[in-house]
Design a protein around this nucleic acid. Sequence first.
DNA 1: CTGAAATGATACGGCTCCGAAACGATCTTT
DNA 2: AAAGATCGTTTCGGAGCCGTATCATTTCAG
Lengths: 116, 116
Amino acid sequence: MAVDLRPSQALKLLHDFNFEVVRDDDRDLSARQITILLTVYLDPPPHTVRGLAAKLNVTKPVITRALDTMGRMEILQRRRDPSDRRNVLVQRTVKGALYVERLADLMAAKAKELPL
Amino acid sequence: MAVDLRPSQALKLLHDFNFEVVRDDDRDLSARQITILLTVYLDPPPHTVRGLAAKLNVTKPVITRALDTMGRMEILQRRRDPSDRRNVLVQRTVKGALYVERLADLMAAKAKELPL
DNA sequence: CTGAAATGATACGGCTCCGAAACGATCTTT
DNA sequence: AAAGATCGTTTCGGAGCCGTATCATTTCAG
C-alpha cells in the first residue's frame, strides 16, 4: 500500500495523461493494445498469443491483430518458439522500450503536478 | 507537487488500471473519448463542440461523433445554448457521473496496491 | 433585409477493429 | 504412420472511427 492517491487526484491524473497522449500522438493505442504492450514489458516471459488472450480475457484474433499493428510500429516483435514451433513468442524491442519509458515518464510527471 | 510516483510505479499503475478496464468492459472508450469525458467532468462549463475540439487539438467531427457515442451510452448529454442557438452545450449526466466515479475509484484502488 | 460569418452536423471513402468460424502448420498420441 | 489435439492466422460480414469537404441553421454586419 504505497501510493496514496485520492479519487479526485486519480481522475485528474487520468485526464492529464490521456490529454497529453491525445494531443501529441495522432495515432493512439487502444486500451487493449496498451494492456498487451505493458503486460509484455512488465510480466516475465515467455508470452504467447494464447497466454495473452487468456490473461486479458479476449479472443486470440485480438492478440494477433494487435501484434500486427504494434509489430508495424516496431514496439513489439514476434518470434517462433524453437522448442515448439506452434507457439509464437511475443518479445520486446528497443523502440518499444523507449515508447514504454516515455509513457512512464509522462505519467510520473503528471502525477508530480497534481494538487494536494 | 503532491503525488510522488516513480516511473516504474506509474507503468504498473497504468497497466493494472487498463487491465481491469479491458477485462470488465467488452467495449472500451478510446483515449480521445476518455479525454473528452473527463474534460467535461473536470473543467468548468460551458463546453462547446468547437471549444472541446480546440482544446484537444482534434477536428470538430471527432467531437460530434464522440458525443453521438457517449450520448447513446448516456454518460454525456447535448443541449442547445438558449442564448446562441448555434452552440451546443455538452453536459454531464447522472450515469456519466457514476461512470467517472468508478474510473476514479478503480485508479485509486490500483494505486494503493502498488509496491514501494 | 441581405450577404457574410460562425457553429455543429452530415456525406464520403478509407482504415481499423470486432467475434465467430474455418484453416494450415505443428506436435502428441496411439 | 495415422488420427487427434493445439496453436496462431486468416476470412467473413458488420461496426466504429478517421479527416476532408460540404451542408443547414443561426447570428451578425452592412
